[in-house]
């Protein structure tokens, strides 16, 4: 039973990872690309790690999956925040069709 649920989680995670990577190609500027890559790839990878934990159960590798999930949840938004701020500081413009910029 755990096996089946785990495989479902892994499949869902792979689908979201794929969508995130497609977003990297389709979106026009660096901020939109960060949106796609941060949200979809974090959620997808968390799903993959959780599914792996369900398949493996409470052993050495399974617990490491859970730890990696927690560290990923902390580090991924922080790094995207740093990238977005660095892009803005280095003068990266918003893409065409943007409505309003209230930052400075």
């Amino acid at each position: 039973m755990n096996n089946i649920i785990g495989v479902i989680f892994i499949t869902l995670g792979l689908a979201f990872d794929l969508i995130g990577c497609l977003g990297l190609f389709r979106f026009p500027d660096v901020y939109n690309r960060l949106q796609a890559s941060t949200k979809c790839v974090t959620f997808g990878t968390c799903n993959i790690l959780f599914g792996t934990f369900l398949v493996l159960g409470f052993n050495a590798a399974g617990i490491k999956c859970l730890l990696a999930l927690i560290f990923l949840l902390f580090s991924s938004p922080t790094s995207s925040h740093a990238l977005a701020r660095a892009a803005h500081k280095s003068g990266e413009k918003l893409c065409e069709g943007s409505v309003g910029n209230e930052y400075k």
Partner: peptide, 12 residues
């Protein structure tokens, strides 16, 4: 991402 014609209105 999946929708065929991308019409975004991004902003800060």
């Amino acid at each position: 991402i999946i929708s065929p014609n991308l019409s975004l209105k991004p902003g800060i």
